[in-house]
């Protein structure tokens, strides 16, 4: 039934990339996305490729996990490739029959744009594979906290995200249990047309909502009884620390960006 659902794709192993400060990883990922768009030639792509290989090796995440992120995008990738392949003007004709005309220029441009998507997905996958959702929420809170000046609720937002993430598996488990309990009473979730099926969800949804509200009020009470009063003056159990490795990572990415800019000017 609803078993085996893991949230996000955090891959829990230990590595230098995992140990990096989540703030560093978040910022560097954004910089990496910009860098992908800076690359204009195949030399630039070579650099990006080398960087990704390095980061992936250091992260101890199996290649299979990295490529899994591409699966949902496979149609977008294929369409991008085909559109560019057929509709880019070029001179060196490779194949030509009926209305189809494939040129060398078009082929390389199609490859170029598809690879750009692949780089973007794998780069961001590396972030989510090596950083737990909670750490990510923490990092976001700190990075957004300067916006508190304009009354942006950075802490509240991060807290909401953390709580939601924390309770998704719990609620799934609960849904599974309620579903079984109702099936034991003769409920039928599997047959019938759309309307009967939608109706059959009532015995599942009502108890699930009731329990979610009960949990929410229990949680609020528990937080308050432990003196939670919002982000003001709150200290952290695990203080995020900028280490030497973070410095090295920043330097490597800075070098990558510098080289890409140089490449843009020179080539």
């Amino acid at each position: 039934m609803l078993s085996n659902i893991t949230l996000g794709q955090y891959y829990p192993v230990d590595s230098r990339v995992h140990r990096l400060d989540p703030r560093t990883k978040l910022i560097l990922s954004i910089v990496f996305i910009v860098a992908v768009f800076l690359a204009k030639t195949w030399v630039g792509y070579g650099l990006l490729f080398a960087f990704i290989v390095l980061a992936a090796r250091l992260s101890n995440v199996p290649l299979k996990m990295l490529f899994r992120g591409l699966k949902p995008l496979k149609w977008i990738l294929i369409i991008t490739f085909l559109l560019n392949l057929f509709f880019t003007p070029g001179d060196t004709v490779w194949v030509s029959f009926w209305v189809i005309r494939i040129t060398k220029e078009a082929f390389f441009q199609a490859l170029f744009y598809s690879l750009r998507l692949v780089f973007l997905v794998i780069g961001t996958s590396l972030l989510t594979l090596t950083t737990s959702p909670v750490a990510l929420a923490d990092a976001m809170e700190i990075l957004l906290s300067p916006l508190k000046v304009i009354h942006f609720p950075a802490h509240e937002l991060a807290m909401m995200m953390t709580i939601a993430l924390r309770f998704v598996p719990t609620l799934l488990e609960e849904a599974d249990k309620i579903m079984k309990a109702q099936m034991a009473r003769g409920a039928d979730f599997e047959s019938g047309n759309l309307i009967t099926r939608a109706k059959a969800m009532v015995p599942l949804l009502v108890p699930l909502f009731v329990s979610a509200f009960r949990r929410a009020s229990d949680l609020a009470m528990a937080m308050e009884s432990r003196c939670y009063h919002g982000g003001e003056g709150r200290t952290r159990l695990r203080v995020l620390k900028f280490t030497r490795n973070d410095g090295i990572a920043c330097l490597v990415v800075a070098a990558l960006v510098a080289l890409l800019i140089l490449e843009g000017i020179l080539l």
Partner: peptide
């Protein structure tokens, strides 16, 4: 199995959470 579940009734742990 649905007919069978009527002959073998199962009351879950903490069944009060299944009322709706």
């Amino acid at each position: 199995r649905r007919a069978l579940r009527q002959r073998i009734g199962l009351v879950f742990q903490y069944p009060e959470y299944q009322l709706f």
